[in-house]
């Protein structure tokens, strides 16, 4: 067992955990924040995506004890029914989901993707490594590729993200 404290969605949480507990299981099984999903538990699907200190990661491939003092944002921290995040609203409007299981990961990832583009981080499809990346459909598709949607809502998800990116200017 090991003690760890971190901040989740603006609240500090202290846990005493089996060292083997992943961040994902700490969220789902100990903090009862089940919005982050376990699709594969091996970093192969993206359903567990959360942001740690503002960066998206697969929470299934990191140990909770490695996050002492970190600030973690899960889907629940982005918005809840009644006060949705613009991306959550856009996913509803564009039907950017079907079964809903990959959806929280897609949305958290999308929030981070827009931040990454804004921060000027290039991608595999950026034509010029030294230019400022733009919000283009090809860029979104490449950057979102770590989030698998077996229901196949990709086309709608890209529409949803594009709309939010556009309205942000």
């Amino acid at each position: 067992m090991a003690k760890v404290s971190f901040n989740v969605n603006g609240e500090s949480r202290a846990l005493d955990l089996d060292t083997r507990t992943t961040l994902l299981d700490a969220l789902r099984e100990h903090l009862l924040l089940t919005g982050s999903k376990k699709g594969c538990d091996h970093g192969q699907c993206g359903a567990c995506t959360v942001m740690v200190n503002g960066r998206r990661i697969n929470s299934c491939l990191t140990l909770a004890v490695m996050h002492e003092g970190d600030a973690i944002t899960t889907i629940e921290g982005l918005g809840m029914p009644g006060h949705l995040h613009p991306l959550q609203q856009a996913f509803i409007k564009h039907d950017g989901y079907q079964c809903g299981y990959c959806t929280p990961g897609q949305i958290v990832s999308a929030v981070a993707v827009l931040d990454e583009i804004k921060a000027g981080i290039p991608s595999h499809v950026s034509a010029d490594l030294n230019a400022i990346p733009q919000v283009a459909e090809a860029e979104l598709r490449e950057r979102m590729s770590g989030n698998i949607c077996r229901c196949g809502a990709y086309s709608n998800i890209v529409d949803a993200i594009t709309e939010v990116a556009g309205s942000k200017g």
């Binding site: 970093g43 998206r56 990661i57 990832s109 990454e116 770590g146």
Partner: peptide, 9 residues
Amino acid sequence: GASGQLRNK
């Protein structure tokens, strides 16, 4: 390589 999430870590 990998995905945005994995490259961040």
